[in-house]
C-alpha cells in the first residue's frame, strides 16, 4: 500500500465519555429511597484516548469487555455525544449527524441486527436503498456484486427470522454496504459464528477493503480476525490507550518472553544432566522430552542463551518464536504486562 499523505479518515484527540450510572444499595428500602433521591455515579468509559486512521487502513481496535471500544465506535459513528475531546470521521464532527457524513459510513454490530425481522431480506435492502437514496441501477449492480461475494442467493427471499446467525450476518453486511460506505465501523462482526463462517466474513471484509479502499475500524475478540485483517492495532484498557502500532510491535512490546524450541541430535541421549545447568533458571524450561527442548525465556536473554546452547549442545534444529498473539493479548488485558513494566524491545 502506498504511503498516504491525505488527511486521516478518522481522527480522535483526547476523547472522553462519561456515563452517569444509577447506583443504590440492594433491597426494597433502598429501592423506595431511590424513588425520592437518585444517586448516580460517574463512570468514565473512555478516559482520553487519541489516535488516527489513514484512508484505506484496516485497524484492529482491541480491548477487554468494558474497555470502551463500543463507546468509541458509537462516538465515531455519531450515535453518542462525547463528554470532551475532538473527533473527526471523514472530516465531519460525527454527532452533528450530517447526512453527507452518514451516507459515507456504516456501522455493523455483531450482537444487533438492523434488518426488519418479519419481512424478506430483499425488502429490507429496498428500504435501505430508499433511505440512502441509492439510484436504482447502482443499487442493482451493487446488489449483484454483494450477492456474489457473500453467496446470498436464496437467502434474500426469506424473512430474517428464518435465517441462521451466520446467514443473518451475511445479510447484515450486504444491507449495510449497499450505499458503498467509505468508512466501516465493525463491532465484533464475527461474534458467535462458527469457524467457517468467521473465515468467510473475514475474507469478505478484506475483499471489500481492497475493492473499495474503505477505511475500516474493527473490534473483535477473535485474534484470528485481527491477525488476518489488521496490520495495525489500537489497544485500549479501562478507557485509556495502551498501544498503537504494528501487530508485530505489540508482541515485542507486551510479551516479555520468547519461546525457544530445540531439536537435539540422536534424541539428546545422555544430555539429561547437562541441560538444566546450561539453561540456568529452572523455570525457563517448559518441557524436555524425546529430544525436544522447549524454553520460555526473557526477551533480553534470548540471544545469549541461544548462542550458548548452540555452542554446547548437538543441535539439529532451532526455532526462536514469539508466543501466540492470544497469549499476549491475555497478558495485556489481565494487566500483567504493560509498557511501564517492560521496556520496548
Amino acid at each position: 500500500m502506498a504511503i498516504d499523505d491525505r488527511s486521516p479518515a478518522i481522527l480522535v484527540r483526547e476523547l472522553r465519555k462519561t456515563y452517569a450510572v444509577p447506583e443504590r444499595e440492594p433491597g426494597l428500602r433502598a429501592a423506595l429511597g431511590s424513588l425520592v433521591r437518585r444517586r448516580t455515579r460517574q463512570v468514565e468509559a473512555v478516559a482520553g484516548i487519541s489516535f488516527h486512521v489513514s484512508p484505506g487502513e484496516i485497524v484492529g481496535f482491541l480491548g477487554p469487555n468494558g474497555a470502551g471500544k463500543t463507546t468509541t465506535l458509537k462516538v465515531l459513528s455519531g450515535l453518542l455525544h462525547p463528554t470532551a475531546g475532538e473527533v473527526r470521521s471523514l472530516g465531519h464532527v460525527p454527532w452533528q449527524r450530517d447526512p453527507a457524513f452518514l451516507r459515507r459510513m456504516t456501522l455493523i454490530m455483531g450482537q444487533r441486527n438492523q434488518l426488519a425481522w418479519d419481512i424478506p431480506v430483499i425488502d429490507s435492502f429496498e428500504l435501505n436503498r430508499a433511505i440512502f437514496g441509492v439510484p436504482r441501477d447502482e443499487y442493482r449492480q451493487r446488489l449483484t456484486e454483494l450477492t456474489d461475494l457473500l453467496e446470498l442467493g436464496e437467502l434474500m427471499r426469506k424473512p430474517v427470522r428464518n435465517l441462521s446467525l451466520g446467514e443473518r450476518m451475511k445479510c447484515e453486511f450486504a444491507g449495510s454496504l449497499l450505499h458503498r460506505p467509505e468508512v466501516l465501523f465493525l463491532d465484533e462482526p464475527t461474534i458467535g459464528l462458527d469457524v467457517t463462517m468467521q473465515r468467510r466474513i473475514r475474507a469478505f471484509i478484506a475483499e471489500y477493503n481492497s475493492r473499495t479502499g474503505a477505511t475500516t475500524l474493527l473490534t473483535s475478540h477473535y485474534m484470528a480476525d485481527v491477525e488476518a485483517l489488521c496490520r495495525r492495532v489500537v489497544v485500549i484498557h479501562h478507557g485509556t490507550l495502551l498501544y498503537d502500532g504494528d501487530l508485530t510491535g505489540l508482541v515485542a512490546r507486551f510479551s516479555p518472553h520468547k519461546s525457544i524450541t530445540i531439536d537435539l541430535e540422536d534424541g539428546g541421549e545422555g544430555l539429561g544432566e547437562r541441560i538444566p545447568a546450561l539453561v540456568g533458571p529452572p523455570e525457563w524450561i517448559v518441557s524436555h522430552a524425546e529430544g525436544r527442548l522447549t524454553l520460555r525465556v526473557p526477551r533480553s536473554e534470548t540471544a545469549r542463551l541461544t548462542t550458548r546452547l548452540l555452542a554446547n549442545l548437538p543441535v539439529r534444529d532451532v526455532i526462536v518464536d514469539e508466543p501466540p498473539i492470544d497469549e499476549i493479548i491475555d497478558l495485556v488485558f489481565a494487566g500483567r504486562a504493560g509498557p511501564a513494566e517492560v521496556p520496548p524491545a
Binding site: 458509537k74 453527507a100 452518514l102 451516507r103 459510513m105 456501522l107 440512502f132
Partner: peptide, 17 residues
Amino acid sequence: LGTLDFTLTKPVDAQLL
C-alpha cells in the same frame, strides 16, 4: 434497548425517521 442506534446511522433527519 439501544435499538435506536441504527436509526441514528441513517442519513435522514432522525426525528422524521
